[in-house]
C-alpha cells in the first residue's frame, strides 16, 4: 500500500477556464474533475471502465475519465457536460434529449451527451447503426436507448 502518494502540479483548461492544481499521481481524472474542480456533472457508474458515465472530451478525443490519471491530462483542453450549453441556453443536442425524452434519472446523460457530441463532430450525418456504435460504451439503465438514439438522429444533419 502507498502511504505517501507522490504528487505533481498540473495545468488543465476545462470548458475554457484554466486551472492549476497539485494532484496526487494516483488520482483519476474523473475524481479530479469532480472532487478538486467541483465539476460534478460527469458521473461514476462503475469501477471497470464499462459504463461511460464519466465520458469527457480531452484534446478533441472522447475519453472515459475514469480510465485516465489526472496527471496525464497536464496541459490538456477538456470539455465536459457543463460546457455544452451556449450562453446559458441548452444546445441543440441537449434540447433534443429533452424533446425526445432521452433521459430519465439523468445519471448517464452527461456521458451520453459527450459521446454523441464527439460522434457528431466526427460525423455530422451518422446512420442509426453508427449512432448505436458510438454510444455502445455508455450504459443507460432507464431508457433502453431507443429515445437516446432518436434524439441524436434528430440532430444529425
Amino acid at each position: 500500500m502507498a502511504t505517501v502518494a507522490s504528487s505533481k502540479s498540473i495545468t488543465v483548461t476545462v470548458n475554457g477556464t484554466t486551472y492549476e492544481r497539485e494532484v496526487p499521481a494516483r488520482k483519476l481524472l474523473i475524481h479530479f474533475l469532480r472532487d478538486d474542480l467541483d465539476l460534478t456533472g460527469s458521473h461514476i457508474g462503475c469501477d471497470t471502465g464499462n459504463c461511460g458515465a464519466c465520458s469527457v472530451i480531452v484534446d478533441g478525443t472522447l475519453v472515459k475519465s475514469c480510465m485516465m490519471l489526472a496527471v496525464q491530462a497536464d496541459g490538456a483542453t477538456i470539455e465536459t457536460v457543463e460546457g455544452l450549453a451556449e450562453d446559458g441556453e441548452l444546445n441543440e443536442l441537449q434540447r433534443s434529449f429533452n424533446e425526445h425524452h432521452a433521459l430519465q434519472c439523468g445519471y448517464c446523460t452527461p456521458g451520453m451527451l459527450m459521446s454523441a457530441t464527439a460522434l457528431l463532430r466526427a460525423n455530422p450525418s451518422p446512420s442509426e447503426q453508427e449512432i448505436r456504435k458510438a454510444l455502445q460504451g455508455n450504459i443507460c439503465r432507464c431508457t433502453g436507448y431507443w429515445n437516446i438514439i432518436e434524439a441524436v438522429k434528430a440532430v444529425a444533419k
Binding site: 456533472g41 429533452n98 439523468g106 445519471y107
Partner: peptide
C-alpha cells in the same frame, strides 16, 4: 427535470 440534468447540474448524493 431535464434542464438541470442535461447540463450536469443535477444534484446526486456523491456531488
Amino acid at each position: 427535470e431535464d434542464k438541470r440534468l442535461v447540463q450536469g447540474e443535477g444534484l446526486f448524493v456523491d456531488d
